[in-house]
């Protein structure tokens, strides 16, 4: 099963507006400006790799793009709609995976994935589909083990399994490779490439290089 296939129809890009449009975006943290105003466009099938030393505001940039952090100035438009006021369908076309995995320790990876989709109001969740996704993420035997007993890497894999079942077109990934082993890093690169081929968009930060990515553009925050 190719979970990415249904995604292109979830939020069709209007031809005139690029998928994501960022103009003059600047963020402050504790009264200090983090980076010079940033401009970029991201169209279907493109990947933006955000680089920068520690504390340069990579995470803040990503959170501002999702609408979690109020930017000091600038404008972010997703398919032409402001990120602040866009409707539910647009919101669900964006998937953010941050530093923190958003997993509940008491629940199993399968239950966590079901919860995640339920909270995003995704209907009719086919359990086999979710099991396939967790299997692909490398959690085969651990789908019924409470997350409390999983290693850091397995938790990260559980969080990343969301990518396989979500309908989102824009993935915003903050250090997705943290705690992953080499197999999982290769798998992640493959998934990102697959998503881009299906017309998706990815914004990603990572301190370690991801080998084998196509069409990567880089935004350097210094």
């Amino acid at each position: 099963m190719r979970p990415g296939n249904a995604q292109a129809s979830a939020a069709p890009a209007t031809p005139q507006a690029p998928g994501l449009q960022v103009r003059g975006l600047a963020c402050r943290r504790g009264g200090m400006r983090l980076f010079a105003p940033v401009d970029f466009d991201l169209a279907a099938g493109e990947l933006l790799f955000v680089r920068g030393r520690n504390g340069r505001g990579k995470t803040t940039l990503l959170r501002a793009i999702c609408g979690l952090t109020e930017p000091a100035s600038g404008e972010i438009r997703f398919h032409g709609d402001s990120i602040r006021t866009m409707d539910d369908a647009r919101r669900m076309a964006l998937l953010y995976i941050g530093h923190r995995d958003a997993l509940k320790e008491e629940l199993t990876p399968l239950e966590n994935l079901q919860m995640h989709l339920g909270l995003r109001a995704v209907g009719n969740i086919d359990e086999d589909h979710l099991l396939d996704a967790l299997e692909a993420a490398g959690l085969g035997e651990r789908v019924d083990t409470p997350v409390r007993y999983l290693s850091q890497g397995q938790r990260r894999r559980t969080a990343l399994a969301r990518l396989l079942v979500s309908q989102a077109t824009l993935w915003v990934l903050d250090e997705p490779l943290t705690a992953l082993d080499t197999d999982a890093v290769a798998w992640m690169a493959e998934r990102i490439n697959g998503h881009l081929e299906d017309g998706g968009m990815v914004i990603c930060t990572s301190h370690q290089p991801i080998q084998g990515l196509h069409r990567a553009r880089t935004l350097d925050l210094g």
């Binding site: 919101r91 669900m92 953010y96 941050g98 958003a102 509940k104 995003r120």
Partner: peptide, 14 residues
């Protein structure tokens, strides 16, 4: 808040 679920809830439909 600590485990990041609150971010996901804030990005959710409700």
């Amino acid at each position: 808040w600590r485990d990041g679920t609150l971010e996901q809830l804030a990005l959710g439909p409700a």
